[in-house]
Nucleic acid binder design. Structure first.
Lengths: 167, 167
DNA sequence: TCCAAACCATAGGAAGTCCAAGTATATTGT
DNA sequence: ACAATATACTTGGACTTCCTATGGTTTGGA
């Protein structure tokens, strides 16, 4: 928890980059560093909001995904692809969600390798409340103007697409 | 390591948000999720580039900061503020940097509480090479057009300022 | 058919982040 | 001068992420 700094340290780093002759890379460096810092800020805010619900953002995302699934269940495989995290990360999250009774692992009817994830009743309740809080306290009030959010999303979509993040 | 998806899962989530009546929050949600995902992509790329140097991005940032300090040394306190990470995160990074001989902790001449960080000769060498690789393989070639990088940095600076990230 | 290759999930381990607490040192106010 | 407060750093714990390796299951080619 850094106290407010006299000047943007990323802007300072950018100046240093330029001063040392890497002007061509300075803007890219600054943008990447700023993205990482911003992600950290949002993650902390989201986790703080979700803490009273006994959730983290990673686990919230799992619940939210399951809440949208038509059939009410999703193979772990599929879920980890949609959440774009490593399979082992999802295993970790699901372990905790299952331990607190928000989610169940059930066997796949035809494929013995696959496990399906299913929300419990309690899981649905927690999801409902957590999502409401997150919408009110974070998404409705992110601190970013709508226009900026849209521009950001467009730029990042272009970038992610260029990186093979999706087809 | 997710394989390429048929469609952007964040755009899908955004659609779901709208379909469920949270259209007002959808763009913000999508932007925030995209930021987190993009940060993850960049972090993985940076860590992969730095691995041959025996570094991670977190530790590289410490070295880079020290490399810029006029006096050649910096109090941990000051460093953690500039890097905008918790003091304990810096302790963690410095432990590893010191264990591999890239950095030294030396006592502060007048304040007994403070420890100064100092690059070793090997630390300077590693920094030089790592920074060159990062500039060539990540920053020069980030996959983001210069104009996008600049726009991104501006939007994120506005946001971070609004969040009290700096004055 | 049946063996090899692909796939799903999990275990273990390394690293990063944060927070809460604890220790030591400085500073401040009475 | 001395007690209270503030600051600097570290320790321990919770959590996430990734990677590598392993055990089962399924699938596909000889």
């Amino acid at each position: 928890m850094p106290s407010p700094l006299p000047r943007d340290p990323i802007a300072q780093a950018r100046d240093q980059w330029i001063a040392h002759g890497w002007g061509a890379e300075a803007d890219s460096m600054a943008a990447i560093t700023a993205i990482m810092r911003t992600a950290s800020i949002f993650l902390q805010r989201a986790d703080a909001i979700l803490k009273p619900h006994g959730l983290t953002f990673a686990r919230f995302e799992v619940l939210a995904l399951l809440g949208f699934s038509k059939r009410g269940s999703l193979p772990m495989n599929h879920a980890s692809q949609l959440l774009q995290v490593h399979a082992t990360s999802l295993t970790n999250s699901v372990d905790r969600l299952e331990a607190t009774g928000l989610v169940r692992r059930i066997p796949h009817p035809t494929d013995g390798r696959t496990r399906l994830l299913e929300l419990s009743g309690e899981g649905k309740r927690v999801l409902f409340n957590a999502r409401q809080d997150l919408n009110e306290q974070l998404f409705s009030n992110s601190g970013m103007p709508e226009a900026d959010a849209r521009t950001l999303f467009q730029i990042l979509s272009r970038f992610r697409h260029s990186q093979g993040d999706f087809l």
